[in-house]
Design a protein around this nucleic acid. Structure first.
Length: 288
DNA sequence: CACGCGTGGAC
DNA sequence: TGTCCAAGCGT
């Protein structure tokens, strides 16, 4: 094993967080649920939700047996509620196509709703110990600094970047642990803002640090706007539906957003996306 | 491939 | 205090 691998795996062994989906008793379904919830969402906010979901829906079949609206409701304020819808659809697909067992093949995982390259690789790796290149925002940042000498990776995953990640992926059964270890290093030490190089186990090998930590010089990184957007409007509207026991009258939705045009557009969007249904001339609800 | 998609915490 | 960020996906 190289110095690089020994340093990162040793650091992970000593400093990893005790997260429930990483424990030996965690099921592939538990891993999959965690990966859905962790898409663009911090660990601290996922923890309580994951526990609640695993208690209520310990298997794909349990989730698939309920209306999709219940998944949306239980998603609460985790954000990006379409993930709840897709997780529900993925559970249904697992029941129908895989006898209720989360598939262990990357290609089968990738075919599930809401599962892209990252999530397929993560579930195959962390749920089944398979060997895959796992490229998330943390891994990309760590490799950009450590191996390429850049503060941040390019906006999109490049061919060269994937090849570089593949070149350091262990060939033995430590590949999955390696991936989660690099990810953890990015989450705890090699952070986007104020990285703690003094606590980094591979600082002595880091190309970015050797170069004097040059600031990012690539294309402008896009920043999401929020106030006044359709996205904010959708969030308000869906919160009303989520917090209600049954159907909601249009007036209750009108009360949470001033601009009629934008409100109507957002509501149509929610219905189009399957996050809401119109159950009467002037009433709406979560999908059944 | 650029964009839209939620939410809340940190600085 | 506004800006940036957090285990991405689908179109």
């Amino acid at each position: 094993m190289s110095d690089l691998h020994e340093a990162i795996l040793g650091w992970y062994d000593a400093h990893q967080r005790d997260l429930p989906w990483r424990r030996p008793e965690a099921t592939p379904w538990g891993v999959m649920v965690s990966e859905f919830m962790l898409q663009q969402t911090p660990v601290v906010r996922v923890l309580p939700m994951w526990k609640a979901w695993m208690t209520r829906w310990p298997t794909p079949a349990a989730l698939a047996a309920e209306p999709s609206g219940e998944a949306v409701r239980a998603w609460g304020r985790l954000g990006y509620p379409r993930r709840a819808l897709r997780l529900h659809a993925a559970a249904a697909a697992i029941v129908e196509q895989h006898d209720g067992a989360v598939p262990d093949e990357y290609d089968d995982l990738l075919a599930l709703p809401g599962v892209g390259d990252y999530t397929a690789a993560a579930v195959a790796s962390f749920g089944f110990g398979r060997r895959h290149v796992v490229l998330d925002t943390n891994v990309r940042r760590v490799f950009a600094r450590l191996l390429a000498g850049h503060e941040f990776p390019a906006p999109g995953v490049t061919k060269a970047e994937r090849a570089l990640a593949a070149s350091v992926l262990p060939h033995d059964d430590s590949a999955a642990v390696w991936s989660v270890a690099v990810m953890e290093l990015g989450a705890l030490v090699c952070t986007a803002v104020a990285p703690r190089c003094d606590a980094c186990p591979v600082a002595h090998l880091c190309a970015w640090r050797t170069a004097g930590r040059p600031t990012y010089a690539g294309p402008e990184r896009k920043v999401q706007t929020w106030a006044g957007t359709d996205r904010q409007c959708r969030g308000r509207l869906l919160a009303v539906l989520r917090d209600a026991d049954g159907p909601v009258h249009r007036s209750a939705l009108e009360a949470v957003w001033d601009k009629p045009d934008q409100r109507d557009r957002a509501l149509r969007g929610l219905v189009d996306d399957g996050l809401a249904t119109q159950v009467g001339p002037d009433s709406f609800a979560l999908p059944g």
